[in-house]
Design a binder for these strands. Structure first.
Lengths: 194, 194
DNA sequence: CCGCTATTAGCACTTGGTACTAATACGAGT
DNA sequence: ACTCGTATTAGTACCAAGTGCTAATAGCGG
């Protein structure tokens, strides 16, 4: 025995975790045992074969991508919208949105939800944010659901400007308030969906 | 011919792009041609086989993950920092950061870079943003590099507050200005790196 | 009807395995 | 020394999803 079985299996687990793209043959060379031994080890440890491992990685990231594509276009999910008037979106704070140390959501996620909502509520092919004032009233932590409500408070068609106020809350408590001065690129092109 | 070759090959490309996990056999059923035809098509279009496709996706995401872990903690790359004084970060605007329609960077990315930099420049284990005022002066497009400079303009240790001004520019032209009122959670714990 | 492209079929071979059987090695216990 | 039991190795058949190659056939244009 080159080294005890248990030890080898631990090292094997490790090796595969750090590089899922390794074949049984390569592992057999690495640990100086036969390919069959590697396969028995994998079975005992319930580690799937190379192709399955790769596939899992691929599927995971693929799904992530597919998910992030439409969601990221409007940060948070819009659940109600009345163009040029108001809109509501929800955003579930997940572990990846918070600071590792204290689990508090990073400010830019709250901003992103609010700003995207402000853009969405503008009935325009393309609206840009010009100015903005933000207040972060209460920290939000992972697991909480932020409800953002946007309201168009003023319009100034001559100057192609509109003002949107967004109030975000978690369970009735206001956590964030933002006001956005928006610039609309087109004059008043109605019915331009999407 | 069920439908002209060119048309089928276009559809094939599309089909594989939207679902890289499809086998030749499944494609053969989808387009009602033989497996061999699918293979000839793939060769002409230089589309690799299923396993290679999956592997590419996996490798890509695998590398992304490894890369993104440390980078994502601070949005944009910090190239210079003097704690409690000032900091500079750069952020390369890529296609995924812009609106599809006009290629203009979404506001929350500019905010994220600036806000993260404001957090980073605070010499504190954990700083939170309390208030913020933003001006988006010029649109930024994909391919441009944003340089953000943060400056701590005022400190108020009694109230655990500090004020940070961030100016972002693209090739000397100012594109964004943000002021951040930050709350420091710890009193004055020195030497607490990272 | 000829020629040409497109399509289909078939076979050998490749990778990286699974599933299973059989042989062998080694070490501990008696 | 013999035996039991685990560990390891070898070998075979088989699978999926291909590549690479040759050959046959279909369909159409001129």
């Amino acid at each position: 025995m080159r080294r005890p079985k248990k030890e080898r299996q631990q090292a094997l687990k490790n090796s595969i975790r750090t590089n899922p793209f390794v074949t049984d043959e390569e592992l057999s060379a690495e640990f100086d045992v036969s390919v069959q031994t590697i396969r028995l080890d994998r079975m005992e440890l319930a580690i799937p074969e190379l192709r399955e491992r790769i596939k899992h990685v691929a599927v995971r990231t693929y799904e992530d991508e597919v998910k992030s594509l439409p969601i990221d276009e409007v940060f948070g999910e819009i659940i109600d919208i009345e163009l040029d008037e108001r809109a509501i979106s929800i955003f579930d704070v997940k572990p990846e949105h918070v600071f590792q140390r204290n689990k508090i959501a990073r400010g830019h996620h709250l901003f992103a939800q609010a700003n995207s909502l402000a853009v969405a509520v503008m009935n325009d092919e393309l609206a840009l944010t010009v100015k903005s004032e933000l207040q972060f009233l209460r920290p939000v932590t992972a697991g909480q659901r932020i409800v953002a409500k946007a309201q168009v408070v003023e319009r100034n068609p001559e100057k192609n400007r509109a003002y949107v106020k967004v109030v975000s809350s978690v369970e009735q408590a206001t956590v964030f308030i933002g006001t956005f001065e928006m610039y609309r690129m087109t004059e008043q092109s109605e019915g331009e969906g999407q």
